[in-house]
Amino acid sequence: MEILDSLAYGFGTLLGWQPILIIIAGVVVGIIVGAMPGLSPSTGVALLVPFSYTMSPALAVILLVSIYISSNYGGSITAVLINTPGTPAAAATAIDGFPLTLKGQAGKGLGMSLIASTIGGVFGTIILIAFAVPLARLAIGFHPADYFALAIFGLTTVGSLGGGNVAKAMVAVLVGLLINTVGLDPISGVSRFTFGADALYDGFSLIPALIGLFALSVVFTAFEKGKLSKRQVSAAGGKFPTWAES
């Protein structure tokens, strides 16, 4: 049972006060990094690699993994509180979480997101440990047609999130795809819709587009309503979700 030996060794490296302190520090830094729109989990890890130079390899990996995992959660904090996803992955959290904040139940939104992130993270890790090898085999068997089907599935899911009018949701999805076709075609390298402008060759990158579309739309909605104070949350409290609610 090679896998059990490896697991025992892996958990063994976590024992002691040093790894625990590093995990706590990594999680705190990671949440802050994730909550900042513009700093993605991978940017956060890249920025903090220099800090790991003086550590032993095991501790360095522990630090980077804690930062990566917690920054993926951190993105949901700004998504829930100010409707601006801190990480691309938190875009869907903003749809459910921000209305809770407007109702004065920010605590519930943040708690739910924390619980979901924790369960998802632990579950994902277990799956990874148990099925990494068979999953890798499956991934190799994934062909372009399968990727295409998966992408179509994802896009139809996004379309259904629009609520109400399906045609409008489709238009939103397609405008997103349209923006994404600007730049060099990834297959043939032909430039598309760049109109000779060098700046357009790389296309539009995700984070600026996310900030522009999410954060600025909040600003414009505020202008439409007139005064920001009218939109203010009635009470910034809200309790952590109870056991039954979660």
């Binding site: 045609a167 409008k168 489709m170 238009v171 397609l174 405008v175 076709t181 043939s188």
Partner: peptide, 29 residues
């Protein structure tokens, strides 16, 4: 302009697909 290296699908197919569905959805609206 397609390059001489283009494959069967080419760089135009995907944008054309987007244009067609975008047009249909707009007409529906």
């Amino acid at each position: 302009e397609e390059s001489f290296l283009s494959d069967a699908v080419g760089p135009k197919t995907f944008p054309l697909g987007i244009a067609v569905i975008l047009g249909l959805a707009s007409i529906a609206i």
